[in-house]
Structure formats: structure tokens, C-alpha cells
Design a protein around this nucleic acid. Structure first.
Lengths: 217, 217
DNA sequence: ATTTATTTTAATCCTTTGTTTCAAAATAAT
DNA sequence: ATTATTTTGAAACAAAGGATTAAAATAAAT
């Protein structure tokens, strides 16, 4: 009569491991995360990771690509902006969607933190991510920039401007702990992100145009 | 006669541990680094860390503050620029010195990588660093920005511009693995850093001036 | 209903890791 | 020269972590 074991039965273990793994990997890193903690958070047995994924490293890779894929579906780089819209608008959509992906605070959204860790400490999973996701993204930005800088703008200049744009965004992700220490009242709600995206867009448009119209000055 | 044991005797063990620790912590992270590897690289006994520092965490903290202190001595934020120099020059000095600190490739210079890891995965050592080093640095930049934006510029605007400047610099550090994949020919020699600093300065000056003269444009 | 395949569980193995111990060696002080 | 003090060395400890195994439980197929 007393079947009191509260074992979750509906969602399959594999999916729960992916969720728990994302959370633990994000907050502890690949090295710091333990299979015991992940399995515990997933209400699964210690052997579950080996059974469903082979080993810890394989689970990590699947967590990463799953998080990346779902956040890109949620916030696509164009945010629905028409490809024929003025480049100012497309740049703004690119920047805002980047902010949304990288600082998404929805439950289960660990993509930003995971990627930040992967940058500081590449595990080998990064190579595939670069080719499948980051390179296309970079080319999208480059083609927008060419509309300001002209089709014959030298590649180093375009790369430098792309870095200037992306760097402004990623700063808020990669330096989050410091930012919150220096600026305790800053939050990352949707409205804040839209404000930040507006600033980065305006700041960058001025910078890009200065680069387009010649040198130093 | 055959005293062939090549034991280093001059430099004391403690200093060698600090050097080896910096290298291993930088390339493996705090979790990934093992005291065995550090001691081996320092030609010291396994017990040396405990004897000289108490434990692994204490060694890590000393490594971090030592690296930070020495790189700030090597590349001070003003680079010798006069405090009464035009703000354009002072901004450029701030940016160039930041680049030099963060991407210094001299042997034994692990400050950039260590800080990048500390950002992605704060260990508690970060708090002191913020107060003793990062906050003063941030105020230096803010005071330069006020010369462009006016003494009454709203704090959020100044912060946003500071973030735009610093973000452009740190991008090259925090995303180094991706950058090298996307742009294999980019190196970080002294001349490259000066070129990058010039770009970031010009790009930022345009952005800042646009912010100073009103809104959206 | 019986058999077969799949999934879960508990217990264990084995390696790695941070730390400790304590004696020997080196160094400094008396 | 002798005695303290500091530093090093080799070995071992205890804990933790990733992986494995064989049995049990559950689901699927015949």
C-alpha cells in the first residue's frame, strides 16, 4: 500500500539529464560538474549518463548543441526583419537578437553561460560550433557591415568593425560578475536589453560611419 | 665527484611555484589544475604547496594577485601620458595599455587568461580584485569620458560608453579561440595591438561624440 | 502468456586528487 | 661544534569522482 517513492515517470530520463546537465555544467563548468550532482538533479541513477550518452564528455557536447540550437530557434538573428530592410534596421535586429540569446534568463536557458565558459576554456566542442553556427553568424554581420563600408572595403576593416559590435554585446555576458559589482542596479530584463541594444546600435553606427568616411579624425 | 643532480638551488621554491601555478591555472583552470602538475613543473615536491601556501586555493589567490600586480606595473593605465593631455590622447593610452595588459604574450604573463577564466567562473578571489583594481580603473575611464560627454552627463550613459570601450578590447581576449578560428592570420604582436588600439580608439571616439551630441541620429 | 528487448537500480571498482605525516636533509643560530 | 629552525622528500591517507557490472524492473513483441 505505501508506494511512497516519488519517482518521476513521465518525462524520459534522457531529457531530464540534458536539462540538469545544462544547469550544472553552466554553474560549475565541465571539470567542476560531477555526474553525481547531475544525476541527482535529474532524479536519475549514477549510471544513467553512461547508459544514455556513453560518458560525461558526450553528455556535455549534447547539452551544448541542444542549448545552442534551441536559443537560435527562439531568437533568430534577423528577428523577422526583412532582408531588404535598411541596413540600420538589420544591424539593430542582429544586435538585439544577440543580446537576447546571450542574456536570456528564462528557466532552462543556460546557453550564454555555457558558451562563456567554453570560450575561456575550450573543450573541443567549440570547433564544431564555430563552423556550424558562429561562422555563418559572422558572415551575416559582415554583409550588413559591407552595406555601410562599401562592397570593396578591406577585409581587416570589416573584421575590426564586426569585432567592435560583437565585443560591446559580449561584454555584458563575459563580465557579468564584475558588472554587477560595479553597477548593482543594472538588470537584464527584456526592457533593459532593448535599451542596451539601442545604445550599442547607435554607438556602432557612429563608429562604422566614421570608419567608412576615411581615417583617423 | 659525480654530483649530477640538476636541482635548481638559487630561486626559492616559493617563486617557482608561483610561476608554475600561473601557467597551469591559466591553461587548465582552478579545477582542472592539479597540484601534482604544478609541483612537477616547479621541480618541487608534492608537499611544497601545502608548506608554502597552505593549500591549493591559497596558492591560486597569490598567483592571481601577483600576476595582476606585475602586469599593472609593466603597463600602467596612462602609459606615461600627462594627465593634462587632451582627452583623445588619454583615451588612446587607456585603450592601448588595456590591450597590452590583456594580450601580453611575454613568457610568464598569464594575467589575461587567468582573468578571463575568473570572469567566466568566479572563485571568490574576484571580489577583492574588483575593489582594489577594477573599480579604480573604471573610474579613470569614466573621468575621461566625462570630458567628452560633459560633467553632467547621466551616469547610465557614461557607464554604457565605458562598457562599449572596454567590451571592444576584451572581445579579443575572451573570444580568442573563436577569433583564431575565424581569422587565422590575425596575430597579437605589439604592432597588431597598436593597430587594434588605434581602431578601437577611433571607433569609440565617433561613438562617444555621437552620444554627446544628442540621441538617435 | 511468454519471450525478448529496453531501461533502471544498487553496489563496486579503480583512478585521480588534495592533503598529511614524519623522517631526512639543508640551513641558520648559538 | 652543537643546537635549533627551516625546508625538502617519499610514502601514504582519505575522499571524491568517473566508470562498470549484474541483477531487477519495466516495456515491447510475438
Amino acid at each position: 500500500m505505501s508506494q511512497t517513492t516519488d519517482v518521476v515517470v513521465s518525462a524520459e530520463t534522457r531529457a531530464r539529464l540534458l536539462r540538469a546537465g545544462a544547469e550544472v555544467f553552466a554553474s560549475e563548468g565541465f571539470h567542476g560538474a560531477t555526474v553525481r550532482e547531475i544525476c541527482s538533479k535529474a532524479s536519475a541513477n549514477i549510471a544513467a549518463i553512461n547508459y544514455h550518452f556513453g560518458d560525461k564528455a558526450r553528455l556535455y557536447e549534447e547539452v551544448l548543441s541542444h542549448q545552442l540550437g534551441s536559443v537560435l530557434l527562439k531568437y533568430p538573428p534577423t528577428l523577422g526583419t526583412d532582408p531588404s530592410a535598411p541596413p540600420e534596421d538589420r544591424l539593430h535586429a542582429f544586435i538585439l537578437s544577440f543580446f537576447l540569446r546571450v542574456l536570456d534568463q528564462s528557466p532552462g536557458a543556460w546557453h550564454g553561460q555555457l558558451m562563456a565558459r567554453e570560450m575561456a576554456a575550450p573543450t573541443g566542442a567549440l570547433d564544431r560550433i564555430v563552423e556550424s553556427i558562429l561562422r555563418p553568424l559572422s558572415q551575416t554581420l559582415n554583409s550588413i557591415l559591407h552595406e555601410f563600408l562599401g562592397p570593396d572595403a578591406p577585409a581587416p576593416l570589416v573584421s575590426a568593425c564586426a569585432a567592435s559590435v560583437v565585443g560591446q554585446i559580449l561584454f555584458y555576458r563575459h563580465c557579468q560578475p564584475v558588472i554587477h559589482k560595479l553597477n548593482p542596479l543594472l538588470t537584464f530584463e527584456r526592457a533593459d536589453l532593448e535599451r542596451l541594444a539601442r545604445h550599442v546600435t547607435d554607438f556602432s553606427l557612429a563608429g562604422i560611419r566614421a570608419m567608412a568616411t576615411g581615417g583617423r579624425r
